[in-house]
Design a binder for these strands. Structure first.
Lengths: 247, 247
DNA sequence: CCCTCACTTTGATGTGGATCAAACGGGGCC
DNA sequence: GGCCCCGTTTGATCCACATCAAAGTGAGGG
């Protein structure tokens, strides 16, 4: 079993996180070769729109580096972010050509793409791909449901604290030397945070200032966050205090 | 193709909507027999809790009749509905034993259940089941994203109008004789609607009264809704006015 | 080095929906 | 028929967050 994992040719599907999460974890060598044959990379810079709502999308993809967001916009301009894709997350619907929301690069971004139709063919030949995608989609649905609780019932301060803990859990490099400092860079502007949280950017800014004033977070520059005590932050989220730090 | 569909033994998996949506649409006779062997029914009455958050769930299921809801509750009692399951919707995660939210019957309810482990085995043997479940889960994720826009950015009146249009789309019997009346029963109390919409029950009630006062809806009793002109309702949702009535 | 521009912070005021409180209505049961 | 109870409606008040407005900050470019 472990020898089999070691047998995966590391040079194939090289820096592509999809190997770990969506497709390749249980792939055999010949399947990896098929994936190699249909994959290609695309890069975007911060702020660039990848696809507009309603456009055709002829590929599925996995995020290599950077952050992408899915956003819905109402006619009068109100906007709500409905998805935030970090490295190794999957983008696209194998069986559907169009998307229902704008996809935007919120930071510089690299995607590992697979053309849709060959990817579909490969799904037919390789049953565990669909099973793995099902797992990932169910995880995303669970995340969406947490997000709904946040949007529907949490206060502005709880929303900010929850958001920071979500980003910290995925991004933080943490400093176990001595005490438990957790530090990371925010990959979003205050406006994008507001779109994520269903707030205005002014409220986001005020609540960040409030958390800083109360010593829950430290701000080094506008974007770099240091959390001196993760439990203190968790107390602000409104979530049950189970499963310890970054579990 | 159509002859093949007719070849499905109608007496198998008899009144079970899972046949149409999750599993059986492309099943052969022998696969249907395997499904028959592991399926069973469970009934619940309105208000009954099916599973509590954190409990083990040893089955997956499909809603036969009635309505079930998925709800998250914060420690201080704030509640947010995060899923609403109508007939033919699927419940459960094949690969996970526990659930992260309470599952409750909001009306009298019948489920068609499959024990989890045999269902998993069947998924391994029958690749199109995972593909179909992936499709359904992606649809649910799209619905969750619409819901997030509603929770984050819509006004109370828009939330109510959107909710009514969602229920109408799935439930309504409509009366094409003469004009386009659309009528249906609300499967939820005002309180459950409030949990769905991220509002209080008082606000739900006030906004319903408002829509009634303005002639957008008629109320016959507390629960029966008549919509004299669906376009009028759609104008209140804040959504783009594309894809006509009940498309 | 300073100017610019995009992002952010802070301040003053307004308001939609929450909260607290009371009355209403109708179905089931004695 | 009358009473009770649960779900619902309506009213009065409050407050968290939106809105409108202005000033601060810092990175990049001339």
């Amino acid at each position: 079993m472990s020898s089999k994992q070691l047998a995966f040719p590391q040079s194939q599907c090289a820096d592509c996180p999809i190997r770990h999460r969506a497709v390749c974890a249980r792939c055999e060598t010949d399947e990896l070769e098929k994936l190699e044959a249909i994959k290609y990379y695309r890069s975007y810079e911060a702020g660039q729109t990848i696809i507009w709502a309603g456009d055709k999308m002829d590929f599925v993809a996995s995020v290599v580096h950077g952050v992408a967001s899915l956003t819905q916009t109402m006619e009068d301009g109100r906007r709500q972010m409905v998805g935030l894709l970090l490295p190794s997350d999957f983008l696209g619907r194998p069986n559907r050509e169009s998307v229902a929301y704008d996809v935007t690069a919120t930071t510089d971004l690299q995607l590992c793409c697979f053309r849709r139709v060959p990817f579909l063919d490969m799904m037919d030949d390789t049953p565990h791909i669909a099973q793995r995608l099902l797992e990932m989609t169910l995880d995303e649905l669970d995340a969406a449901r947490e997000w709904m609780l946040l949007l529907g019932r949490k206060t502005a301060r709880e929303k900010i604290a929850s958001f920071l803990s979500i980003i910290a859990r995925r991004d933080a490099t943490f400093n176990n030397s001595g005490h438990g400092d957790v530090a990371f860079d925010l990959p979003l502007t205050r406006e994008a945070m507001a779109d994520y949280l269903g707030l205005t950017l002014e409220t986001v800014s005020r609540q960040m200032s409030g958390l800083k004033r109360d010593g829950v977070i430290r701000l080094e520059g506008k974007r770099h966050i240091v959390i001196p005590d993760f439990d203190l932050l968790m107390d602000e989220t409104g979530d049950d205090a189970d499963g310890g730090i970054l579990s």
